[in-house]
Computed example of a mutant assay.
Amino acid sequence: MAKRAKLDDFRVPFFDGGKGAKALSLADFDPSSKPFSAGSKQADRERLTAYAARLDEMQERLHAQRRERVLLVLQGMDTSGKDGTIRAVFHEVDPLGLRIATFRVPSPDEAAHDFLWRVHRQAPAAGELTIFNRSHYEDVLVPRVRGELTSAEIERRYAHIRHFETLLADSGTAVIKCFLHISKDEQRERLQARIDDETKHWKFDLADLEARRQWDDYQAAYAGALAATSTEHAPWYVIPADSKSHRNLMVAALLLRVFEGLDLEYPPAKESLKGLSIT
């Protein structure tokens, strides 16, 4: 009998401060696999609907309690589905207490500060679920591929990120990081679909083709960053993402597990409201 897949089978090994990062190869993860699929796209969507309803309840408790914080980081190559994941997983979630932060090329003001300055400002407040659509990891991935920073500078940034995420965890933030792992062939199909559909031209950027030509360099950069920054309090998970429905289901399952591990209860009932009748 085949071994049943577990979520933690897709967790990147934790960084060992004494020994450093364990070598990680993304080739060990099949982006086309669907280990948590319910059997069909329709069945996956039905299961996702159930997960989304449960997430809605848990997120409402989070916001009502205003004590815990949750941060979900979504990273991946172009077309890996960061926007699609947000739309699919959170369509049932009450927007109250839900916030999405997107990180693009730093503005002149942002670039004048340290690379984490703009990120820390977007960290979740008490009672918030915040989603980073791209994140502080852009500042170790892109510079590495473009050769803008030395290896020593990249390693220092990895250390800064580990310390930053430790600060978030120590301040009551549950951090979960998902690398949406697609294949080069799947990316080609998704980019071509954007070109073939005029209504999607706005989503296409010629810079995407340059990044695609550097595919292997970006895969190596991701592998290095994930290995150096996956920790017990801020783990990385590799999400097979060629299947959109499977991708959404797995991210929802991971997030739901995080929520269920928190002590989330509604605030005590108010004695002053008992017996009150509205006329």
Rank of each mutant, 00 (worst) to 15 (best):
A64I: 03
A64H: 12
A64S: 12
A64G: 09
Q65H: 08
Q65E: 12
Q65C: 01
R66V: 08
R67L: 04
E68Y: 14
E68N: 14
R69Q: 01
R69D: 00
R69N: 01
R69H: 01
V70F: 05
V70S: 01
V70L: 14
L71E: 10
L71N: 06
L71M: 11
L71F: 09
L71A: 09
V73T: 05
L74K: 02
L74C: 07
Q75G: 12
Q75S: 13
M77S: 10
M77R: 14
D78S: 15
D78V: 11
T79L: 08
T79G: 13
T79D: 12
S80I: 10
S80N: 12
G81A: 03
G81T: 06
K82S: 04
K82Q: 07
K82H: 08
D83Q: 02
D83E: 03
G84D: 04
T85N: 05
I86A: 03
I86H: 01
I86S: 03
I86R: 02
I86N: 04
R87A: 07
R87W: 00
V89K: 02
F90W: 08
F90C: 11
F90V: 04
H91A: 06
H91C: 06
E92F: 14
D94Y: 00
D94S: 12
D94T: 11
L96Q: 03
G97T: 05
L98W: 00
R99G: 00
I100A: 03
A101L: 00
T102G: 10
T102N: 04
T102R: 10
F103R: 12
F103V: 09
R104F: 07
R104L: 11
V105Y: 10
V105H: 13
P106I: 14
S107C: 08
P108Y: 05
P108G: 10
D109G: 13
E110V: 04
A111Q: 13
A112Q: 09
A112L: 05
H113G: 09
D114F: 12
D114T: 14
D114C: 10
D114H: 15
F115S: 06
F115W: 13
F115V: 11
F115D: 07
F115M: 13
L116G: 04
W117R: 14
W117Y: 14
V119M: 12
V119T: 15
H120V: 15
H120G: 15
R121T: 06
R121Q: 14
Q122G: 05
Q122I: 06
Q122C: 12
Q122Y: 01
Q122K: 14
A123T: 15
A123M: 15
A123W: 10
P124C: 10
A125V: 07
A126T: 10
A126Q: 14
A126Y: 07
G127C: 05
E128N: 09
E128V: 04
E128L: 01
T130S: 13
T130H: 02
T130N: 02
I131H: 03
F132M: 04
F132Y: 13
F132N: 00
F132R: 01
F132W: 11
F132P: 01
N133S: 12
N133P: 10
N133I: 06
R134F: 08
R134A: 07
S135M: 06
H136Y: 15
H136S: 14
H136L: 13
Y137D: 09
E138C: 13
E138H: 12
D139P: 04
D139M: 07
